[in-house]
Design a protein around this nucleic acid. Structure first.
Lengths: 342, 342
DNA sequence: TTGAAAGCGCTAACAA
DNA sequence: TTGTTAGCGCTTTCAA
């Protein structure tokens, strides 16, 4: 009933504790014969090392740096809070987390920050990436200096990052299409899309998925060219309100970036009889209220808390030397409606 | 940068390690004056005890027992697998998990099993409850013997269980109503409900939530009296097929229990032009396929793996002496459609 | 009412 | 190439 320890392994193999330790940690200087003796002792006893004891002994500390975009985007501010809370919790696991902010969508600033990172004080980095070559280069240099790097929420394909923690945005767009298509069934007309900017990778991917599904599954609906609201509430409101007024056949709206307030305001100006189904992204205080009062029909969400936890987990496992760590469970595209709000 | 330890606390308070330990663990035999001296040292240093080290030292072991219903219900069989897998993982945290099965819906058998549990060999119990007074009494007795008890998936309100890990089934029903109502908009008609048995608490709650939403938000739709398929595929198929044939106005089906195969088979017999929207419960290999091929429109799901993890976490915290531990995150009613399948 | 010392399972010098 | 020994932060005898 009591688990075997390295003492047991050492006894059975007829060697000392240090030799067992060497074998366990793949250290140099063990004869092949000895190693196999130890290995068979391990197997026959079913030994599994006690990680807590190992960490206690080794006084391992993980120093992580989270890099987030600055600015008003409320999803990012929630993410920042999540990082702060998880940082407090992570302290108990000997993990120290520092948060740095860079101007949003400023690849130069991000690259510069990455370049300034000192491996003497940082073991691993989790970053919300801005998609640019200069950032890829900075990532490569950082890796060369021995720092682990993963991307968070927004990926950097083609870089030397060792992992990505976030949702599949094409899938998110497809899900939005699937929902909105069904919601608008029986009311053939036009569907409006509101994006931040098609220059953003995430937004482009969501649009792609959305159009795929709508075209193939709900061909009766017409998609109109996306409005680019630059994630700015007022711009989104003005553009969408104008479009809704011009085009009485719009029966559905998919907002795939920030600017939910603008969407809600534009809709609130509609005449009483007009019925428009709405799907947006990110569950916040605001979108939650909008679900409850019926302004929005569904909200697609990514669990930013779990994303932060995932990034921490991934970095720790990279630093522990695991070659290709993967998240135990992927981050999912969650669907919220008024009635399954958490 | 390095965390304070009990050594630091002892030094600052001018006492020995054992005294600090006594204060930390609320043990007898410390003068009030000494205790307060230690407390202020703890506070001024911001000391937080290293739980891993404490557990290592005390060689704590948690012996848990999971009680699940026996039988063919595929959700329960998945749950059983999850328990087995988490049990293997929990071993590393000094947690030994034993699984016991009792005949489904047999309150007497469950109560008897609870009564047979020996506090000498079990510290905590997680059970899928059957709702009956005899079970409540057995729970009280078990608690009196010093065993921690939580309910899993199916709750036992009014008992002395110390927690519940599962979804809110009224909320699940409401969510189904909200989805199906929207899916069927523009096709006013009748909505059929398929349940296992209205004697089951979970099913009754789901029905309640479903009807609430449909009546208040989609009053044009008529709900027909629920079919009781007893979670049996063939029964479900026959009953539903007959109903669909009789009533060409049925535009939506909500299946709130097991028997998804029966639902799919009944639907597959429908003439080509007929369009029925379908919402069911529990994501399995089968319901997944049905989403992909379009037979089902949405599947409501509870993450049984996380439920098991939650129950383990809750029990451990109860055994650690936390008075009212709560799950860090509630178990959610998840919505899956073809495009956000994990 | 307090303290000293041994030890939990593992790692990391240092010696041999 | 292998072994000895002193901790990591905390708990737990046993003595004082």
């Amino acid at each position: 009933m009591t688990r075997p320890t390295i003492h047991d392994v050492a006894r059975v193999a007829g060697v000392s504790l240090s030799t067992v330790d060497r074998v366990l940690n793949d250290r140099e200087g063990v004869r092949e014969k000895t190693r196999s003796r130890v290995m068979s002792a391990i197997n026959s006893l079913g030994f599994e090392r006690n990680i807590a004891a190992a960490n206690l002994s080794r006084k391992r500390r993980y120093r992580l740096c989270f890099i987030l975009p600055d600015g008003q985007n409320s999803f990012m501010r929630v993410l920042e809070e999540d990082v702060a809370e998880e940082a407090a919790a992570a302290l108990r696991d000997f993990t120290v987390i520092e948060t740095r902010k860079v101007p949003a969508f400023d690849a130069g600033a991000l690259a510069e920050l990455l370049r300034s990172l000192d491996p003497e004080s940082v073991d691993g980095v989790a970053m919300v990436a801005t998609d640019a070559t200069i950032v890829r280069i900075a990532v490569r240099e950082l890796r060369a200096r021995g720092v682990a790097v993963v991307t968070l929420v927004s990926d950097l394909p083609g870089s030397e990052k060792q992992g990505f923690v976030g949702i599949d945005n094409v899938q998110a767009g497809r899900t939005a299409g699937s929902l909105l298509g069904r919601f608008c069934r029986g009311r053939t007309g036009r569907i409006a899309m509101v994006s931040g900017s098609m220059l953003l990778r995430d937004h482009a991917e969501r649009r792609l998925g959305f159009e795929q599904v709508l075209r193939s599954e709900f061909p009766d609906q017409t998609i109109i060219a996306p409005l680019e609201g630059l994630d700015d509430k007022d711009r989104v409101r003005d553009q969408l309100a104008e479009r809704l007024a011009q085009d009485p056949d719009i029966v559905g709206v998919y907002s795939l970036g920030a600017g939910n307030r603008g969407v809600a305001e534009a809709l609130s100006g509609l005449p009483a009889g007009r019925d428009v189904s709405v799907v947006v992204h990110e569950l916040t205080r605001f979108s939650r209220e909008a679900l409850l009062d019926g302004s929005f029909d569904a909200v697609l969400h990514q669990n930013s808390r779990r994303e932060v936890q995932g990034a921490i987990e991934l970095l720790r496992r990279l630093l522990d030397g695991e070659p290709q760590p993967a998240l135990s469970e992927p981050i999912r595209v969650e669907i919220y409606m008024r009635d399954n709000l958490p």
